[in-house]
């Protein structure tokens, strides 16, 4: 039994770095040496192998853990399709961009457009599970087509912007215009939220499928799902009425 790969940042990143190709293709069987060859694009210095920035150790088992100050690391986990990726601290913008499978767990905060669509693409996440244990910047989960994005603390403005389907769960405060222009899909707000004016209140009820989802988040990721989240009620808002109107925002309420 192995622990998977560990990627430890050798020294502080002094320029923004684009990690969009590091985990884009099949990577779960790559050795540490092969993973070290994956390209990273530095803002000023251009293409460098991952191994130049990170010390990579361990044996492949479908799991990789990144550690170090990654606030300037952008697009880490972009196009992820399999395996389990853990980022020990906070990370830059566009983590999990357009991911289609696997799990990406960010132990700290995430930057803007986490799990969103790549520039010029109509679809963002099409699968997988993206867990942010801290807060996320603006437009998290924009244009999501399928999959799960969880933000354990606050979400920036316009989370779930233009969602096509999928789930965005926000445990803390959700920013303004969350779910704006969504076609389908669900935003679950366990903290405070003001739905956009283009959403219409439907009813207050107890959605059974949320019990399945919340159980998964508690058991699989150890997220702090409280008893009241299971036993409470949810106000259902349908929207975005400026689009298909088949989306929803489910807002937890005690009664």
């Amino acid at each position: 039994m192995t622990d998977g790969l560990a990627a430890r940042l050798r020294s502080t990143l002094r320029q923004r770095a684009d990690f969009s190709e590091v985990l884009a293709d099949s990577w779960t069987a790559l050795s540490a040496a092969a993973m070290s060859q994956r390209p990273v694009y530095l803002e000023r210095d251009g293409k460098v192998p991952l191994g130049e920035l990170f010390e990579i150790t361990g044996n492949p088992n479908g799991h990789i853990r990144f550690s170090g100050d990654l606030l300037t690391a952008d697009r880490l986990g972009a196009a992820l399709s399999s395996g389990h990726v853990t980022i020990e601290g906070s990370v830059g913008a566009e983590a999990g961009l357009g991911m289609s499978g696997g799990a990406l767990v960010i132990e700290g905060d995430a930057g803007d457009r986490t799990g969103a669509a790549p520039p010029g693409f109509k679809r963002g996440m099409t699968g997988g599970e993206l867990i942010v244990r801290g807060s996320a910047g603006v437009e998290a989960g924009a244009a999501m087509r399928r999959g799960l994005l969880v933000i354990a603390r606050a979400a920036g403005d316009r989370a779930g912007l233009g969602m096509i389907a999928g789930n965005v769960v926000v445990f803390g405060k959700a920013g303004s215009n969350t779910g704006l222009w969504s076609k389908r899909g669900s935003v679950v707000a366990l903290g405070s939220i003001t739905p956009p004016p283009t959403y219409t209140y439907a009813c207050t009820y107890q959605p059974i499928h949320l019990r399945l989802l919340l159980t998964r988040l508690r058991d699989q990721y150890g997220l702090a799902v409280l008893r009241r989240h299971f036993t409470g009620f949810y106000r259902r808002y349908s929207g975005d009425m400026a689009e298909l109107g088949k989306g929803e925002i489910l807002v937890w309420t005690a009664k």
Partner: peptide, 22 residues
Amino acid sequence: QSSKVIAGERFWRIPVMEGEFV
């Protein structure tokens, strides 16, 4: 109706007068 994929399994949410049937 709508569906949700949770842990790789798809569940259907069928609206009924009482609420939803999953």
